[in-house]
């Protein structure tokens, strides 16, 4: 393919949008990991839960889908907190392997529960899509047009990430959350309710996943099983950026998004998915703790 300005711009647009989704997912995973020291393998399914909640709210309320996203995020945050309370809390501190198995059980439960609901409502299990009112509009920008959906997704992602950063850095709540992730025992001794922090962090992570899910639902059709691939990409991102590091997740998320998009445009479809694994391999060989991670 000829590499002209229009192609490059297109690669960048797609890369940034894909990067936003990976970044939101990976940031959520990292917040959960930071506080609870748990990697939730069902994060992709939580994301699709966000897609479905947004989809149903949108089709019931007949509003602009972007307006129902905050409600969907709250709903999924609530569900996430419930999941944490019912499943991860009882086995806390037994072993990491149990937590891995438990999140696999969650994958099975969530995927198929969503399938049941989708079949009950749509009669059959077919991929659905949220049709955005901006679908046909775009902003002329250089050699190509930037679709309005892309513009909204990018700016919302940026706002949410900045907001999250400010909450974590500038508020008492953020200080407590960071204290728990640095040293759980010390934080508990200082009077932080660590178990409540677990629940809240799981809620925040789930809400970020729901946001990613809503964006995904606007960009492409989804079904209950669409969460697996994005989740694997998010794992690659957190390994790339360093487990638990939020700046690392943001940076690695966009690096992965852009390089995937470049690979898809220049080399063809299958390489798009292989590149995440290639990155993963390279980083694991060269620097297993990730770009921003700490050794040990």
């Amino acid at each position: 393919m000829v590499l002209d300005a229009a192609t490059i711009t297109r690669i960048i647009f797609w890369g940034l949008v894909a990067g936003s989704i990976y970044t939101l997912l990976a940031t959520g995973l990292n917040i959960i990991f930071g506080v609870m020291k748990v990697v939730n393998f069902a994060h992709g399914e939580v994301m699709i839960l966000g897609s479905y909640v947004t989809f149903y709210l949108w089709s019931m309320a007949q509003l602009n889908p972007y307006l129902v996203i905050p409600v969907a995020m709250l709903v999924v945050a609530g569900l996430g907190m419930l999941i944490e309370r019912l499943s991860f809390r009882p086995i806390k501190g037994t072993s990491k392997i149990n937590e891995i198995f438990l999140s696999l059980a969650l994958i099975l439960i969530l995927q198929n529960a969503m399938a049941v609901v989708a079949v009950a409502n749509l009669r059959e299990l077919k991929p659905v899509l949220i049709s955005s009112p901006f679908r046909l509009e775009s902003i002329p920008l250089g050699p190509v047009n930037l679709p309005n959906d892309f513009a909204v997704i990018l700016s919302v992602t940026a706002l949410v990430l900045v907001g999250l950063f400010l909450v974590l850095r500038r508020t008492g709540f953020g200080r407590r959350l960071r204290a728990v992730s640095q040293n759980r025992t010390a934080a508990a001794l200082m009077g932080v309710d660590v178990e409540r922090m677990d629940m809240i962090s799981f809620g925040i992570g789930s809400a970020l996943a729901a946001l990613a899910g809503a964006f995904l639902a606007i960009l492409a059709p989804f079904d209950p099983y669409s969460g697996t691939f994005p989740a694997i990409k998010a794992f690659a991102v957190i390994i790339l950026g360093g487990l638990g590091s939020i700046p690392g997740a943001v940076m690695a998320g966009f690096i992965l998004g852009l390089s995937e998009s470049a690979a898809a445009f220049l080399l063809g479809g299958v390489w798009k998915d292989a590149i995440a694994f290639a990155f993963l391999t390279a980083i694991l060989v060269v620097r297993p703790e990730g770009i921003f991670g700490e050794r040990g």
Binding site: F41, K96, I100, L243, A274
Partner: peptide
């Protein structure tokens, strides 16, 4: 070889990803 140095989470994530990538390949 890729995973021996890795602990639980990383190993689980890499193997999880590998199966899905295999299908794509």
């Amino acid at each position: 070889l890729l995973c021996v140095r890795l602990k639980e989470w990383f190993l689980a994530m890499v193997t999880f990803g590998f199966a899905v990538i295999m299908q794509a390949i």
